[in-house]
Design a binder for these strands. Structure first.
Length: 474
RNA sequence: GGCCCGUUGGUGAAGCGGUUCAACACACAUGCCUUUCACGCAUGCAUUCACGAGUUCAAAUCUCGUACGGGUCACCA
């Protein structure tokens, strides 16, 4: 049987890295086994629907290299791929289930349910629908429907026994049937619930591997009961550990850039993000950490997904992304850095050549595009401030002389080039009789306010003669 | 509250009965390289795997209990 996986998001507009990771894992599972990867939009909750969300999902996946073999924009023979366009299908199957006695009509009002829930709450026990409408006769049901009463269709659960299934990640999962609620399959607005649509579609679309967040670990037995009722073959389940923020709490906008598009706009590279996200809760057999998508396809094994939650660690993301930054060609590098520079600083008096030079010398120093802004502020600020470490260093008595000679030599440069600046530094070395750290550091600190930075001659060159002289005299 | 899942160094994480099993990476420290910084390279960094008991000749690895953390109990997915 051909392996088929699906990424089945709700179009709520926001795609955080946890969702993206699910998509990546689904993609990797399919491609590793030479199968298909498809997109299905689960828009059964009309109240949460966001316009343009589908395009957003497409854009994100395209940027990341996750190509769909089938989906709303490139349908295969299993469409439609948007659940709101499949309503008739769900209804048909729901009715079939009622026919078989595995589901029933329920006319209970919101008020009655709330009352029941409150009671359960007071007794501090879990609320379970009491099966009130299960006893309704055919005649009673017909009358109620004729009277226009709103209804839902609920799945009939066994009241005793246990259900067990095997998960690729979590192993054998067993739950008692008595805790399974007669869950709603079809809502009163005619839309199916996730619980129902998901099963119907996965079967109809011949999905073989279902990868999803582990919040479904406990409800999977209910889905299996549905498969059994229809006599369908159950898929292989791969429940994914949750992605947590650095503070150990659920990922949110607060504890980091949780949205892929935010990362992308900050100048992170999709290859880097995909590489990092794959390592969230999964590890290869070797100790390598840098992988292209193609390499990942070859080695991805869902059995190696970990059970414990994965921590989304921006530091590690930065480290991986910096690998990809170093390999970037100049045009690409410019495209992810210059827009941020322009936003932060006034570049109107800078030449393209100057900007290119600036970005180039920082290529090995930044881990994502936007970081260029904070590391280059010494080129744009009027005043530079030395930290304690710098001030401590500058206390050495020999420094005044070194800087004085340097200033004289700089003033005498007529042709402002990196090469000539380099020559000046060598001249200072001779005349002041200092070398190494005592030669470079005073100059670096005086003109940049920092002990770290890119090549000194380049820094001096880009600062310009006027600024350098000005800072030397402060 | 019931049920399910997790807990390895400063951090992220491998390992899932023995054979270097406490990998690897980040961070940190030191050294080399570069006339400086950074990059790169090299070395160091958990007598110990939440805690307690048990099984075993042998446990981070299996079992039970405790603690802590998370998930789930919707006409949301």
């Amino acid at each position: 049987m051909r392996v088929r996986t699906r990424y089945a998001p709700s179009p709520t507009g926001y795609m955080h890295v946890g969702n993206l990771r699910s998509a990546i894992f689904e993609y990797l599972i399919a491609k590793n086994l030479g199968g298909d990867f498809l997109l299905r939009i689960e828009d059964t909750d009309q109240t949460r629907r966001v316009e343009g969300a589908v395009e957003f999902i497409y854009d994100t996946c395209k940027l990341c290299g996750l190509d769909f073999d089938e989906g709303p924009n490139n349908p295969g023979k299993y469409g439609p791929y948007i659940q709101s366009e499949r309503l008739d299908i769900y209804k048909e199957y729901a009715l079939q289930l009622v026919e078989m006695g595995k589901a029933y009509y329920c006319f209970c009002s919101e008020e009655r349910l709330d009352e029941l829930r409150k009671e359960a709450d007071e007794k501090r026990i879990a609320f379970l629908y009491d099966g009130h409408c299960k006893k309704l006769t055919k005649e009673e049901i017909d009358t109620k429907i004729k009277n226009g009463e709103r209804y839902v269709i609920r799945q009939k659960m066994p009241k005793e026994g246990i259900s067990t299934y095997d998960d690729v990640v979590y192993g054998e999962i067993t739950v008692e049937n008595r805790i399974l609620e007669d869950q709603i399959l079809l809502k009163s607005d005619g839309f199916p619930t996730y619980n129902f649509a998901n099963v119907i579609d996965d079967h109809l679309m011949e999905i073989t591997h279902v990868a999803r967040g582990n919040e479904y670990l406990m409800s999977t037995p209910k889905y299996n009961l549905l498969y059994d009722a229809f006599g369908w073959e159950k898929p292989t389940y791969v429940h994914l550990p949750m992605v947590l923020g650095g503070d150990g709490l659920k990922l949110s906008k607060r504890n980091g850039d949780a949205s892929f598009m935010d990362l992308y706009h900050d100048g992170y590279l999709p290859e880097g993000v995909v590489n990092y996200l794959t390592l969230l809760g999964w590890s290869p057999e070797t100790t390598d950490e840098i992988f292209t998508l193609d390499e990942l396809i070859k080695i991805f094994n869902p059995k190696r997904i970990s059970k414990s939650p994965a921590i989304y660690d921006v530091k590690k993301l930065n480290w991986i992304n910096s690998h990809y930054m170093k390999k970037l060609d100049i045009d690409k590098l410019l495209s992810i850095t210059v827009p941020h520079l322009k936003e932060a600083y006034d570049l109107s008096d800078k030449s393209d050549e100057w900007i290119k030079h600036l970005v180039t010398i920082y290529q090995n120093h930044i881990s994502y595009g936007k970081e260029i802004v904070e590391v280059t502020d010494l080129f744009f600020k009027e005043d530079i401030k030395m930290n304690d470490e710098c001030q401590e260093f500058m206390k050495d008595p020999s420094i005044a002389n070194t800087l004085k000679i340097f200033e004289e030599e700089i003033m005498n440069i007529s042709d402002w080039t990196v090469e000539n600046i380099n020559t000046v530094i060598n001249t200072v070395k001779e005349k002041a009789d200092v070398k190494g750290k005592m030669l470079y550091m005073p100059i670096r600190i005086k003109i940049s306010g920092q002990m770290h930075g890119p090549e000194l001659p380049d820094t001096i060159y880009l600062l310009g003669k006027d600024v350098v002289l000005k800072r030397l005299n402060k």
